[in-house]
Simulated assay, not measured.
Amino acid sequence: MALKRTNVYAEDSDLDLIKEAAARLGVAEAEIIREGIHRIALAHRVWDEPFVSDDETFDFGGPVGKDEIRAATTGAHAGQERHGQGDAA
C-alpha cells in the first residue's frame, strides 16, 4: 500500500488519546491515525449498488418497535428454558 503524506488539524484532547492508545498498544501514533482514517473512509463510502436486492429482503409490515422486540426475545428465551436449553449446568 502506497502511503501519501497529508496534514490535518486535530484537537489536543484527541491527540492525547491517540498518544495514550499508541503507547498502550505499542504501535506508532501514525498507525492509530491511519486506522482511524481508514475506518471513517469506509463508514462514509457510497456503494454503486445495494448489498441485497429487494427480492432478497423481508417485509415485516412496517417498523418494529421495542415492545415487539422485547416480546419476541423474551418469548424465545422462555421457550428455550422450557426445552432445557436455557440452563448451562
Rank of each mutant, 00 (worst) to 15 (best):
T73E: 09
D12H: 04
H77I: 11
F51V: 11
D16H: 05
H44L: 04
V46Q: 12
T73H: 07
L25P: 01
S13I: 11
D48A: 10
I37W: 05
L15Y: 12
A72S: 06
I33N: 03
I69M: 08
Q80P: 00
R39H: 10
G75F: 00
E29P: 05
E31F: 03
D12K: 08
E29D: 04
H44P: 00
V52C: 00
V8L: 14
T73V: 15
G84P: 02
E68F: 06
E31T: 13
T57C: 09
G61E: 12
A28I: 03
A21V: 08
T74N: 09
A30P: 04
G86C: 01
E56H: 05
F60R: 09
G65F: 02
A78C: 00
A78L: 06
A10C: 13
T6R: 15
A72H: 06
Q80R: 15
G65L: 00
H77T: 08
S13Q: 09
R45C: 04
D67Q: 05
G65D: 15
E49F: 06
D54S: 10
D12Y: 01
E31W: 02
N7P: 01
Q85L: 15
R82K: 14
K66S: 07
A2N: 05
H83T: 12
P63G: 12
A43D: 14
D55F: 10
H77F: 05
E20A: 14
G84E: 05
G26L: 05
F60P: 07
V27A: 00
T74F: 10
A10I: 12
